[in-house]
Design a protein around this nucleic acid. Structure first.
Length: 102
DNA sequence: AAGTTGACTTTCG
DNA sequence: TCGAAAGCCAACT
């Protein structure tokens, strides 16, 4: 199990918790706030932290949520009124409107 | 110390 | 516009 360092994980969780409802940030953006490009490491922290953080507000640059967690994320997005875009395959987040810049 | 893995990003064909 | 390949960073074995 890839258990991230406490300090790194803490920093990631702090940024994620700072994202307001109805908004989202890409993994790359979160990593940038931390002063690095480790988007994958950010995702790793999310997987480790699990349900204690609004992980659905952290999505990929494509506008799609975490792989394999699209349904759960969708429920949250509809609940929070996050700007979504319908796609033939399903849906995606409208990053133009929903992207949160700290 | 070196290699593998991952809820990623960006570029090239 | 879509799919494949390479690139990057942090953590684990």
């Amino acid at each position: 199990m890839r258990q991230p360092a406490a300090d790194f994980a803490e920093a990631v969780l702090d940024v994620v918790a700072a994202i307001p409802p109805g908004k989202v940030m890409t993994y790359g953006d979160v990593a940038a706030v931390l002063g690095t490009r480790a988007a994958r490491a950010v995702g790793n922290v999310m997987a480790w932290s699990g349900g204690d953080v609004p992980w659905w507000r952290v999505i990929r640059a494509s506008g799609l949520p975490a792989a394999g967690h699209e349904e759960r994320a969708l429920a949250r997005f509809e609940e929070e009124g996050t700007p979504l875009v319908a796609t033939p395959d399903g849906y995606k987040v409208d990053l133009r409107l929903a992207r949160h810049i700290p």
